[in-house]
Write a protein that binds this DNA or RNA. Structure first.
Length: 267
DNA sequence: AACCAGGTCTCGA
DNA sequence: TCGAGACCTGGT
């Protein structure tokens, strides 16, 4: 199995996925409904658990030529230094449904709270797993659970979350088919779903549907883009600049910027 | 104790 | 198409 180059701490801890936890030097998570433990082994990863190598390679996008991508998005010294300072940071290929549902919950909340909401949802609706964890629930497990969802602390996201699950359950949106669509069509379709606007659509596109040219703009990226390039304004204007400036791997650029700004305190 | 968080929705101009 | 407000809740 070839998973390198990869840095587990950066890749799993940068905020693109919400369910992985680090205990000691072991990352614990769930992949394809199976509990899994990952350890950093130099530039690569050692896995324990019932998941096949093929699934791991797919999940960690081992088909991406990271060196090439890092070189290609290093359009100026500023982004180049961010790339240089975060070796092994990779995008992850998430499950589209889990990704979309998670980011519907991620609106206007901080990461610790997002993680809590998602765990509540998994405990409430998901299948219990042998190791004591819970799988991320399928749409049909959520679609009838309005009352149960209200006990998950989702706030105003609750109705959107359940409505979105129903939409997917009824087959009115085919997430997987959007993988083959172009970026514009992909985000247009996603945006027609309850709880999914510009930002979430871009996240789902880049984190789960292989649209690496998507460029999600959240408040942190918005600040970063203004500081780095003097770009501000509407979502569409910042998004368009990022896509044009960084090109086909704009999504990777976005993640390196997001990661680089995570610990910076504004003075 | 305020302020803010990987935004979306609605409405009016 | 754009800007302004409202919006649950809990971290920091």
């Amino acid at each position: 199995m070839r998973l390198g180059p990869i840095d587990l701490d950066r890749t799993l801890g940068c905020g693109q996925v919400f369910r992985w936890r680090k205990e000691g030097n072991v990352w614990k998570g769930i992949l394809n409904g199976k509990e899994l433990q990952l350890r950093q082994k130099r530039g690569s990863v050692v896995a324990e658990g019932g998941t096949d190598d093929e699934a791991l390679e797919r999940y960690f996008r081992s088909d991406d030529d990271l060196d090439r991508i890092r070189a290609e998005i290093s359009r100026d010294e500023r982004i180049a230094s961010m790339v240089a300072n975060a070796p092994g940071l990779r995008l992850i290929r998430q499950d589209p449904w889990e990704c979309a549902a998670s980011y519907v919950l991620a609106t206007n909340a901080n990461i610790p709270r997002i993680q809590k909401m998602i765990e509540n949802v998994c405990r409430t609706f998901g299948d219990p797993l042998p190791g004591g964890g819970f799988a991320f629930p399928r749409p049909d497990q959520i679609s009838g659970g309005n009352e149960a969802a209200k006990a998950c602390g989702l706030g105003f996201r609750c109705d959107r979350f359940v409505e979105f699950a129903r939409l997917v359950d009824r087959g009115e949106i085919g997430l997987e088919t959007l993988r083959k669509a172009d970026y514009e069509e992909c985000v247009r379709e996603l945006r027609s779903c309850p709880g999914i606007g510009d930002k979430v659509a871009d996240c789902v596109a880049v984190f789960s549907l292989d649209h690496l040219d998507a460029f999600p703009v959240d408040v942190r990226i918005k600040k970063a883009m203004e500081e780095m390039y003097g770009v501000c304004g509407t979502y569409r204007s910042v998004n368009r600049f990022g896509r044009e400036y960084f090109g086909r791997y704009a999504g990777y650029a976005q993640e390196y910027i997001y990661y680089s700004f995570q610990r910076i305190k504004r003075v």
